[in-house]
Simulated assay, not measured.
Amino acid sequence: MTVESQAYEYLDNVDPQEQARLAAVRRYRLVDQPVEDAYDRIAFVAGAIFDTPIATVSLVEQDRVWLAACQGLTGVRQLGKEPGLCASVIAQDDVYVINNAAVDPRTLEHPLVRGELGLRFYAAAPIRTHDGYRLGTVNVIDSRPREASARQLKALEHLAALVSDELELRLMVVRSAVAEQRMRETVN
């Protein structure tokens, strides 16, 4: 059994809506790829807007969260999906904010809150494709509690929209390369 057929076998046990979302994540071919400058710049700008030490661009896969870009955490490219902050964000359309994770009932037992990172502030905007799928997040993280302004949260939404636009450009390039390869195979 190939890795691809194992992935599809796993998807047989996933509801159809989540199957479609996962197919949307995979069509951009960004998971398991090196960091690209465009996503790295977006993470940097998110961190600068919020003045947080950590900012990421993430994609939520079936069993993990892939960090397409990560500012402030060295050598981290993926996290487990459960218990997932990013997975919670993609379940809704709005920006997700935790001002003080140490007292927020949604995060009291979360390993990133209780563990070495000591997460206290978290804000994330879902990355939505042009056809409506929520693929991941642009998020900011701090080890101290804080309040975000409405302007900062709007900026985070705009950054998530920029990621979506960048993904569409990436998809056009991928499709163009596939078409070119097919054309070359036909000619030869």
Rank of each mutant, 00 (worst) to 15 (best):
V178G: 08
N13H: 14
H158L: 15
R146N: 09
V138E: 02
L11Q: 11
A20P: 03
L171V: 08
R26I: 06
R64V: 02
V35M: 11
P34K: 12
Q71D: 07
E18T: 13
V89S: 04
R134Y: 09
D165N: 14
L156A: 05
Y39A: 01
G118T: 08
V35G: 02
Y133M: 09
Y39I: 01
I49M: 11
A148N: 08
A101W: 03
A102I: 04
D37C: 02
D12F: 11
V97Y: 05
W66I: 06
P16F: 04
R29Y: 10
V97G: 05
A24R: 04
V31H: 00
I54V: 14
Q152T: 12
D12K: 15
I90L: 05
V3D: 09
P145Y: 05
P111V: 00
R128D: 04
M1L: 11
L156F: 07
A43H: 04
R106A: 00
A148I: 10
L79H: 01
Q92C: 05
E185K: 12
A87F: 09
E157F: 11
K81C: 08
D40W: 00
Q71C: 07
V174Q: 04
D94A: 14
A23W: 03
L156T: 06
R41Q: 13
G132T: 06
A155T: 11
Y28K: 02
A38P: 01
I127S: 00
L117I: 13
C86Q: 04
H130D: 13
Y133H: 15
R151A: 13
A148K: 07
V95K: 00
G72N: 08
L108W: 04
L162D: 08
E116F: 10
C70L: 10
V174I: 15
D63H: 08
F50D: 01
E147K: 13
G80F: 10
T137E: 05
N100K: 05
A179D: 12
A91N: 09
C70N: 11
N100P: 04
R182A: 08
Q19F: 03
I54E: 01
S58C: 09
D165R: 15
F121G: 03
R27Y: 08
L169Y: 12
I98V: 14
V103P: 01
A124T: 03
Y8A: 09
L119M: 11
E168R: 03
V97H: 05
P34W: 12
D40K: 02
A177S: 15
S164C: 10
L117E: 00
A150G: 13
E18P: 09
R184L: 10
E168G: 02
M172W: 10
E166W: 04
I54P: 00
G75F: 09
Q17P: 06
R184F: 06
E166G: 01
M1R: 12
Q33R: 14
A69H: 00
V45M: 11
R144N: 13
L156E: 03
E168Y: 07
R21T: 05
V60S: 03
R134H: 14
S149C: 14
R114S: 05
A91K: 07
N99Q: 13
Y10S: 11
L11S: 09
L167C: 14
R170P: 02
A101N: 01
V76G: 08
D32L: 04
A101Y: 03
